[in-house]
Amino acid sequence: MNKVFMTGYYQGVIEVAPASLSAAKTEELAITMTIQHLRHAGVSVSTIHDFLVLDIHANERLINKYINDNAAELEAAQAKLLSSAF
């Protein structure tokens, strides 16, 4: 998976997130969705971590919070974030 695609996915989540989410919550949503998407695509956890930290410069605390979560846990976190927007 190339970095252009991975960056585009992350940026796409940022752009379509509900406007009522704070910047911090939007970043958290983008992190959880990107981790889930890339893990589903077979990208290694270490590659996802390095991409989010080194290339995206996302919040490392949030990355570490979610990087080892399974799909159900990531979906629950995303649902909680999205429900706070409405």
Results as ranks from 00 to 15, higher is better:
Asn64Ala: 00
Glu27Ile: 04
Ala41Phe: 05
Leu38His: 07
Ile31Met: 06
Glu60Arg: 13
Asp69Phe: 14
Met33Glu: 12
His37Ser: 06
Val16Glu: 09
Ile31Arg: 03
Asp50Asn: 14
Ala41Asn: 11
Asp69Arg: 08
Ala76Met: 10
Ala77Asn: 06
Met33Thr: 07
His37Glu: 09
Ile35Tyr: 02
Ser46Ala: 13
Asn70Val: 10
Asn68Cys: 07
His40Asp: 14
Ala19Glu: 14
Arg61His: 14
Glu28Trp: 03
Glu73Gln: 15
Ser44Tyr: 09
Lys65Met: 11
Val45Asn: 11
Pro18Asp: 05
Val43Gly: 00
Asp69Pro: 01
Arg39Lys: 15
Ile63Asp: 01
Ala72Val: 12
Val43Lys: 01
Ala72Phe: 12
Ile35Arg: 00
Glu60Val: 13
Ala77Asp: 05
Glu75Cys: 06
Ile67Asp: 03
Ser46Met: 12
Thr26Ser: 15
Gln78Arg: 13
Ser20Pro: 06
Met33Cys: 10
Ala58Arg: 06
Asp55Lys: 11
Glu15Ser: 13
Asn70Tyr: 06
Ala58Phe: 07
Asp69His: 14
Ala24Asn: 11
Ile67Ser: 03
Glu60Ala: 13
Leu29Met: 04
Asp50Val: 08
Ser22Met: 09
Leu74Met: 10
Val53Glu: 12
Ala76Trp: 04
His37Gln: 13
Ala30Tyr: 01
Glu75His: 08
Arg39Gly: 04
Val45Tyr: 07
His57Gly: 06
Val43Met: 06
Thr32His: 02
Ala24Leu: 11
Ser22Arg: 08
Ala23Ser: 13
Ser46Asn: 13
Ala23Leu: 11
Asp69Thr: 05
Pro18Met: 05
Phe51Val: 03
Ala30Lys: 01
Asp69Gly: 02
Ser20His: 12
Ile67Pro: 02
Glu15Gly: 05
Arg61Val: 15
Leu52Val: 03
Val53Met: 07
Leu74Arg: 05
Val53Ile: 10
Glu73Phe: 09
Ile67Gln: 03
Asp69Ala: 09
Thr34Cys: 08
Lys65Phe: 07
Asn68Val: 09
Asn68Arg: 12
Phe51Ile: 03
Met33Arg: 13
Ile35Asn: 00
Ile48Tyr: 00
Ala58Lys: 05
Phe51Glu: 01
Ala77Tyr: 03
Ile63Pro: 02
Val43Tyr: 01
Ala19Ser: 13
Ala71Arg: 10
Thr26His: 09
Val16Ser: 10
Leu29Asn: 01
Ala23Phe: 09
Tyr66Glu: 06
Ile63Ala: 05
Ala41Arg: 11
Ile48Asp: 00
Asn59Tyr: 07
Gln78His: 06
Arg39Gln: 12
Met33Gln: 15
His40Trp: 08
Leu74Phe: 09
Ile63Gly: 03
Asn70Lys: 10
Ile67Tyr: 04
Lys25Val: 10
Leu52Asp: 01
Ala72Ser: 14
Asn64Lys: 02
Ser20Ile: 08
Asn70Leu: 07
Ala71Ile: 09
Ile63Glu: 04
Lys65Gly: 02
Thr47Val: 14
Arg39Tyr: 04
Gly42Cys: 12
Leu29Ser: 00
Ala72Tyr: 10
Leu21Thr: 04
Ile63His: 03
Leu38Ser: 05
Glu27Phe: 04
Met33Pro: 01
Val45Trp: 07
Val43Arg: 00
His37Ile: 01
Asp55Cys: 08
Glu60Tyr: 08
Leu54Ser: 14
Thr26Asn: 11
Ala17Arg: 03
Ile56Lys: 00
Arg39Thr: 07
Ile48Gln: 00
Ala17Trp: 02
Ile63Lys: 01
Ser20Thr: 15
